[in-house]
């Protein structure tokens, strides 16, 4: 059982790598995803500032990027990655495809969360003479906040799954450890322990997300 070739240091490094990849790509992906999500909600037909051409461009782009499997995206954008971070291998290089993978996903989740907001609230805002920016900032975003937190929780968990594949470009991380040692070298301990670590990650993140959302929604 404890017959393993992974050192404790490798474990720690893998955990740090995973946290780094998930954290960075979540941060940047949330910013891009929020902007895209808000844009497609406000510019859609009968949105707050209807602009058919913006919606008409963004909506299919998001769909196209989302329909590419992550493993293919990872390889396909290698030249782009190299152009941005100077290398196509390593943890930092893995963050670029992770961001491109997660941003449109977050945009869709944000879109759903914002569309759930009671249209009556937007009507009330417009009746008060709110500007389109004020409608979003003071009415839609606060009302969608709990739902947005749950969306980001879902996105974070997807990212953890995607980081495992990032091992393919030498990204490292816990998932990579599981594949390289556990799967390819039949190291049972590595397999079981990395899976336990991933399960723990997912559980903890989901619990935090749920707790935050409940706190925000107050019920």
């Amino acid at each position: 059982m404890f017959d393993t070739s992974i050192t404790f240091g490798q474990f720690i490094q893998a955990i740090i790598d995973t946290l780094y990849m998930v954290g960075m790509s979540l941060l940047v992906g949330t910013i891009i995803g929020l902007i895209l999500g808000i844009l497609i909600v406000v510019t859609r037909p009968s949105g707050v500032v209807e602009m058919k051409w913006i919606y008409g461009i963004l909506n299919p782009i998001i769909n196209i990027v989302r329909s590419v499997p992550f493993i293919i995206l990872l390889v396909a954008i290698i030249p782009f990655t190299r152009g941005i971070v100077g290398t196509s291998i390593g943890t930092t290089a893995a963050i670029v495809p992770l961001i491109i993978f997660i941003s449109p996903f977050i945009a869709r989740l944000v879109e759903n969360s914002l569309l759930e907001v009671n249209p009556g609230i937007i009507e009330a805002a417009e009746a008060m003479g709110a500007t389109p920016f004020q409608v979003i900032w003071y009415f839609v975003l606060p009302e969608a906040f709990g739902s947005l937190i749950l969306s980001l929780t879902t996105a974070t968990i997807s990212l953890i799954g995607a980081t495992a594949m990032a091992g393919t470009v030498g990204g490292g991380g816990v998932g990579d450890l599981a594949i390289v040692y556990g799967y390819q070298r039949f190291d049972t301990f590595a397999m079981v322990s990395t899976v336990i670590i991933l399960i723990t990650f997912v559980q903890v993140i989901q619990s935090i997300g749920n707790a935050l959302a409940r706190l925000i929604r107050r019920n």
Binding site: G120, E123, A124, G129, T131, F145
Partner: peptide, 22 residues
């Protein structure tokens, strides 16, 4: 100016339309 005049016109609704988060 349209937004300005809306401030002179209050509105109430059947479903109240209050912000649940505030």
């Amino acid at each position: 100016n349209l937004r300005e005049i809306k401030k002179e016109i209050g509105m109430i609704f059947q479903q109240f339309n209050l912000l649940e988060s505030k």
